[in-house]
């Protein structure tokens, strides 16, 4: 039982990280109709800014995050302005391929800045743990879950109550109509990219806190893709639910596979491909994900 609870707890903290990255995908997709494959690269770059300010310049962690977030947001806006703006109106897939190209370029730059060694994030949580009801929870796991709850509430409030949030919802509904109603679609695009980049940065922080930040973070970030697909490309609820489903499936497999001999044929590290399997299964039954909007087709 304890083992089960432990797996579930780990699953939730992993879900928190996936949710952060997935939310970035969904926000960009909803408001700009761009599927952003560059999210893993933004995560690497964002994580790097934080560890740079935190450990190289020795700033307090909170300031490092703040400065990193500013840098990340600016990076996001620059990317949108330089590479995605010329692609407005092009086929969705062509734009997605452009972001793959972007991902390659930014990843190389980020890895070059980071170097090959595992870098400490400079976070206050380290590897400290706390024992609650027989379940060991790391401080950073609690921090991740709390951060996600806070960030998601802030984002939802922003979308619901602020003027800009309303503009973003309008642009997500129909860009041209929003434009004619006086919404600055350009700033909607810019802000979406900025938000996504900052969310990716938080994902990077929690992937790297304690155990250290290195290039494999990009691989974990890529697993947010199945999360988005499972939840549905254009649903924030979907991203959160998908994150929980995918992360729990992954964690439970990681915990229990070694205990059953008849599962050993699946091979080592099987848990890391479980997200993709979950994605296949969900798509077979629901082609638009669990919460995605079904496309209405007109010829």
């Amino acid at each position: 039982m304890n083992q089960f609870l432990q797996a579930i707890t780990n699953g939730f903290s992993l879900a928190a990280i996936y949710a952060l990255i997935a939310l970035g995908f969904v926000i960009i997709y909803k408001s700009t109709q761009v599927f952003n494959f560059a999210q893993p690269a933004l995560l690497l770059l964002g994580g790097y800014w934080v560890l740079y300010f935190g450990t190289v310049w020795g700033w307090p962690f909170e300031f490092a995050i703040l400065a990193g977030a500013v840098f990340a947001a600016v990076t996001g806006i620059i990317i949108e302005r330089t590479t995605l703006r010329p692609m407005v109106g092009k086929p969705v897939f062509a734009v997605a391929i452009v972001t793959i190209g972007l991902n390659t370029v930014i990843t190389i730059i980020a890895l070059d800045l980071m170097g090959v060694e595992i870098r400490q994030m400079g976070d206050p949580w380290g590897l400290k743990t706390v024992l609650i009801g027989g379940v060991t929870i790391a401080h950073r796991q609690i921090a991740a879950i709390v951060t996600v709850i806070v960030l998601v509430s802030l984002l939802l409030a922003f979308f619901k109550y602020s003027r800009m949030g309303l503009a973003m919802r309008a642009a997500a509904f129909d860009q041209e109509v929003a434009l004619t109603q006086g919404v600055s679609v350009r700033s909607v695009f810019a802000i979406s990219w900025a938000i996504a980049a900052v969310l990716a940065l938080f994902g990077g922080i929690f992937l790297g806190s304690g155990i250290g930040f290195e290039r494999s973070a990009a691989v974990s970030a890529l697993k947010a893709l199945p999360v988005v697909i499972v939840g549905g490309l254009d649903s924030i609820t979907g991203a959160l639910v998908g994150a929980v489903i995918v992360a729990q499936a992954e964690m439970l497999t990681a915990t229990y596979q070694s205990q059953f001999a008849w599962l050993s044929w699946l091979g080592q590290g099987f848990s890391s491909v479980v997200p993709y399997l979950v994605m296949f299964i969900v798509l077979l039954f629901r082609p638009y994900g669990l919460f995605g909007t079904k496309e209405v087709e007109r010829v």
């Binding site: 997605a96 893709l225 199945p226 490309l233 091979g267 080592q268 491909v273 399997l277 798509l283 082609p287």
Partner: peptide, 28 residues
């Protein structure tokens, strides 16, 4: 058959997942 049900980006992701599954199988 997956391609009959899925279109556009969703199909791209399924085929992307195929690469990761394949990598795992080849590795093991």
């Amino acid at each position: 058959p997956l391609a009959f049900r899925l279109r556009g980006l969703y199909l791209a992701f399924v085929t992307l997942g195929l690469v990761f599954l394949g990598e795992h199988v080849f590795r093991e």
